[in-house]
Amino acid sequence: MKIDLHPDSFALDGRASFVPVPILRIRDENPHTRTFFFKHRLPAKPGQFVMLWQPGFDEKPMSVAFAYPEKEEFGLTVAKVGPSTEHLFSLKKGDRLGVRGPYGTHYRLPGASDAGIKAKHKRIIMVGGGFGSAPLRFLTEQAVASGFHVDFIQGARSQDRLILQKDIQELGAHLHVATNDGSQGHKGLVTEVLETLLATNKGRYDAVYTCGPELMMQAVGKLSEAHGVPCQVSVERYMKCGFGVCGQCDCGGMLTCVEGPVVSYDSIKKNPEFGVFHRDGAGLKHYFK
């Protein structure tokens, strides 16, 4: 059942209130991860996030992995990591959830008017750690459509934690894999693969895009900078409102939900909290290690 209430009222357009979204289909990615596709014209760009409400349970920020507004479809790739995602995994096709958003800044491809990066070589690199591959898949789709050659470096602890490989390859990106235990691809870190790519193709990349654990993104940013390649990262902080009022997601004076999550490494490297600590729902500090 589709219910449209005051469609002209901006407060009900999903900016701050929930739009009911039925689950269209659910796809298994690996033993811990599923992609949930919903019916809704979500005008999201790669790197943006939504607030997903499971009525009667809770609400969580989720990065958008798929968005096809023209088809009235979007997808969230979700790992089972706690009570909230466990609850989500118990839902079936047709169940209705609430969504609000999209929120935040997004990745910008070289040559985009506001990117500040030139599309000189039409070659870019993605570095996705764990579930960080989800928004980068979305960006890869956009990049390939704009004629970019994409090297996609994907890392995880082990093979059974890798996600969206088929999607990424079908888009035409060149997939490079690193696992900590060597169960697939390079045994070691994504930064080692990145180093090799940047060194062997010196001066031939326009930009590096990364999403994943903060210390990994920091290392990716440093490495890209050392090779003279601009880098964009996606900062994750505890979020409550998503639209810049509650202040819970502050990262060193940056309101992550509206001034982020996607920022240039060049700007975030000066942030006193990036790569150092994040805060929980009470505002208590937790140091990265």
């Binding site: 005051h6 009222s9 407060a11 009900l12 900016r15 701050a16 209130s17 929930f18 607030m51 409400w53 809770d58 609400e59 969580k60 609000r100 409550k240 409102c241 009022v245 509650c246």
Partner: peptide, 10 residues
């Protein structure tokens, strides 16, 4: 527990 904030018309 979330949701802790929501918008309405005004």
């Amino acid at each position: 527990k979330t949701p802790v904030i929501v918008g309405f018309e005004a």
